[in-house]
């Protein structure tokens, strides 16, 4: 009995080619991307800053007797929010770049799961580039921002929308290729 299904005999090749082509595309994409593939895109891009109130860190830098971070103070300009911690090694590595960033646009820091004393020591050692510093000792604020590790840096535009998120320490090539262009665009 001759096998009748000559068309279905081609099915395996067709499916196989499909898998190969797409795998090839994925690999090609992997080779040409700069950030590690495991970084997930923030869900908050294009959305407003989370409404959750952020207490200011108690670092004896408080001049105006404020209690909470007020993001509205930075309306009408581009600014950055940087989640960091004294116990976080990559945060130390990115400290100089955050300082560079702070010279271009205002940067607000949020100390993640840290003690005020340790935050203070960290800032004394690496300098304080932040306009204001919030404290998220429980980690709940980070969850609201979709943060899953430190450090993470967000860019917010003048309308109060989050336009960019970088997870991991800020590296020079990311700074140059991703962040600076966004800043330049806004200033045009």
């Amino acid at each position: 009995m001759k096998s009748k299904f000559s068309i279905t005999n081609f099915l395996p090749v067709i499916l196989f080619s499909f898998i190969v082509i797409i795998s090839g595309l994925v690999l090609y994409k992997l080779r040409s991307s700069s950030s590690p593939p495991s970084n997930i895109t923030s869900q908050l891009i294009g959305k407003k800053i989370p409404e959750v109130p952020v207490k200011l860190a108690n670092l004896n830098l408080n001049i105006n007797n404020e209690e909470f971070l007020n993001f509205k103070n930075y309306q009408n300009q581009l600014f950055a929010v940087n989640f960091f911690a004294s116990w976080c090694a990559p945060c130390r590595v990115e400290a100089p770049l955050i300082e560079d960033l702070s010279k271009i646009i205002p940067v607000i820091g949020i100390a993640y799961k840290d003690k005020d004393i340790d935050t203070k020591k960290f800032l004394e050692e690496f300098g304080n580039p932040y306009k204001k510093i919030g404290a998220d000792s429980s980690g709940k604020i980070a969850i609201e921002w979709g943060v899953y590790g430190v450090p993470e840096t967000f860019l917010i535009n003048e309308k109060g929308d989050i336009i960019y998120r970088h997870a991991g320490p800020l590296l020079y090539n990311v700074f140059k290729s991703e962040i600076l262009p966004l800043i330049k665009n806004k200033n045009q």
Binding site: I40, T41, Q43, I143, G146, Y148
Partner: peptide
């Protein structure tokens, strides 16, 4: 959780 971290 999805609103903050995505379906991932």
């Amino acid at each position: 959780l999805r609103e903050r971290y995505g379906d991932y």
